[in-house]
Design a protein around this nucleic acid. Structure first.
Lengths: 227, 227, 227, 227
DNA sequence: CATGAATGAGGCTTCATTCAT
DNA sequence: GATGAATGAAGCCTCATTCAT
């Protein structure tokens, strides 16, 4: 397990000891996701995490400075994972419109389990990112900021490039793609927990209504004359 | 001050004693907004809040069960305030398109100070809503949920009705309006704190780029054939 | 109600304002018994009591200095009530042995509701006395002590006199009667909550096994040569 | 000290970390007994206990869940200690009557210091048991109950067996022995703090009057025909 | 490298009491 | 005489972190 090549790497600022390199570290990540998802980041403590693993608080301190670094690690992991999935798609040759549509579909499915990473519950991780990341944005110093949003920026760049292929003159690709990403997250959240705030539905793990909404928004914006 | 008619009322579930009815209560709201904005909800404690007012923890507990209820109060206040502002706009007779444009402009300006409520720093409150509300969504039982999102739903209904006037056949007004609201919040956040994630800029309190982006998105969606 | 002649009076040290003289006062006594029985004296507070009545903390302070005085009031009330019941029995002329037996039976039934005092749940009050009175014994200064145990001493004197009639030479009537009283309390407690500590049973409110045990103990002691 | 074999063990439900195994734990027990005896269980707090040791509240919480578990620990310790003392007596071969008399004498002396347990003030502990245990009886769920009263039950069984040797047909040995135990406690209490409730006296640590009273009660009951 | 133990600081909440009406 | 509001002090408990093994 620890010998399998890991398909992406995270900045060293995001941990003290790389949790992917030991079994104990992987359990930390796994349990941290479970606990944060269930109780919220605010109520996570190293004591509870240690009890869940089970291990000791002191052991966790060897891997992460504090729970904030652990959260940053998870959020950064999430963005890198989306990039990794996007890269997988690009192996498939296709016309620009189809590739963009696939990318949007992937965003709509951003809460879906990836068996390649056995110890990560991506659906739970996505909920964590949705809930907690706005808070991180406003707390960070620029150092941490860099490490965290490299993944987000790469994503904007890649999907922005697809847009450029389709509509070379579109003026605000980053604003559009970041809106698409955030809209995907929000509409998934609303569909699942506050159905009175949207008409979109998720039925039995089928996110196609979300995907269609994103596609519609994208196409409309690209055709629309920039005001 | 206490005789001035308050233009909207909040559900009784949102407090123990109505903070609008006493000077002490208003100070609580004012200081809570300041502290939450500066340190984040997680780091707010009634002890710190009491020190800021200044008063005592025990006094605050007479008004709010805990800091979670206080946060729910603030978020609900925010949505009711947006409704109130929207109602102000509607007094002005205008053609449907112009009224919708005014509504979107108001959303783009949702972080702007309203002198009518002297003790509320709306810009700070908006940041709080952006940062903390996703967390509330996932923590609530349905009781609290109701009280909290009545304001949000009313907003969707009102702007939805404007859309209906312009485009009676549009199929997903709630999904569209909730996306517009959330996009407004996000783009404001990105423009201010993570400028590498969007091209939109806010210059000297001028939110017009945000407003234009929202209008463009709206018009594009309404013209676009529903897929 | 407040005009009905009260059949016994309590020392003025036991209250600030006589609770028997107002409806509010009676509710205090009634609710205090309920709460102390259910949650224990330690967890009783004037706030909870006020909420139960319902009234305010400040009102209760008009009647009792603090919860300790309230407890002393209740315990003293209990002993006076037992005296009152004993006096009722003595109205019935009977032979000494029968009268003593009736007294013991009354002790065995000390947890039984007396409809004359509508606002007092004697069974609950008895549990309170059993649970809390040992604590009072060791906390009191002699002033309070006097007021509290007058009732207990009168009871010892009365039943001691009956014993004297039967067995004029018995040397330790107070030790015997106080043991009987305490044994009654304890065996009732054990029968109800810790049945593995005694063979005695209480079936459907029938305390006769307890009564028989007390009678047996009394008779045996009186016949036995004092060592 | 930690190597000396401890002559009895307490159920694991009665603590989080065994206080007998560390110096800090022993100090907790010692100081808890002192404070509870002086101020009463109700006024004991982990803060005060920590100050007395001296240590911190957090450290105490590693040993005991709360002060209720600490009280349960002490009460259970007390009953196990009586059993231990009874077992010591039984090493001495003797005729049944003499052994029973020795057992009763031990009960009458249940407040006497045992130098084997240097950190336990048994006289204080006995007062605590007398004052506080009735309260525990009525608060317990059955789980805790089991752990607490195993010691009491064992005591009843052992002394009950002695009675059986003397009077094989006696019908209610548990009721008798539990009454003897409780009478011992009560008469000691009365003799020391409320001398007007009993003729029995304790002079200079001489509990023989109590012992004689218990013996008399026992013999009388055993000779008495069961009603 | 991992663990068991300890603890200063601070979180959340309630209490007991008083004051003004 | 009764009530509503306010508050200093203290309750209970957990956290974040360090140290020694």
């Amino acid at each position: 397990m620890s010998h399998k090549k890991y398909p992406f790497t995270l900045n060293e600022q995001l941990y003290l000891r790389d949790p992917e390199r030991t079994l104990l570290g992987k359990k930390m990540v796994e349990s941290a996701i479970t606990l944060m998802d269930q109780q919220g980041f605010e109520h996570l403590t190293f004591r509870k995490l240690a009890a869940e693993i089970p291990s000791t608080e002191a052991s966790i301190y060897r891997y992460f400075e504090d729970k904030y670094q652990l959260l940053r690690y998870l959020v950064a992991w999430y963005w890198e994972w989306l990039n990794y999935r996007l890269d997988q798609l690009e192996h498939i040759p296709a016309d620009p419109g189809k590739r963009l549509r696939q990318a949007l579909e992937m965003l709509a499915n951003s809460a879906i389990y990836d068996p390649f990473f056995a110890h990560v519950d991506e659906a739970a991780l996505c909920r964590i990112v949705v809930r907690e990341s706005p808070k991180i944005y406003l707390t960070l110093d620029s150092q941490d900021n860099q490490a965290l949003f490299m993944g987000y920026e790469k994503l904007l760049a890649k999907i922005g490039a697809m847009i450029h292929e389709l509509e070379p003159n579109y003026a605000r690709p980053k604003a559009l793609v970041s809106s698409l990403i955030e809209t995907a997250h929000r509409q998934i959240l609303f569909a699942q927990y506050m159905p009175r705030l949207t008409e979109l539905k998720i039925k039995d793990g089928d996110y196609s209504e979300i995907a269609v909404f994103l596609e519609q928004m994208t196409l409309a914006m690209l055709k629309s004359p920039t005001l």
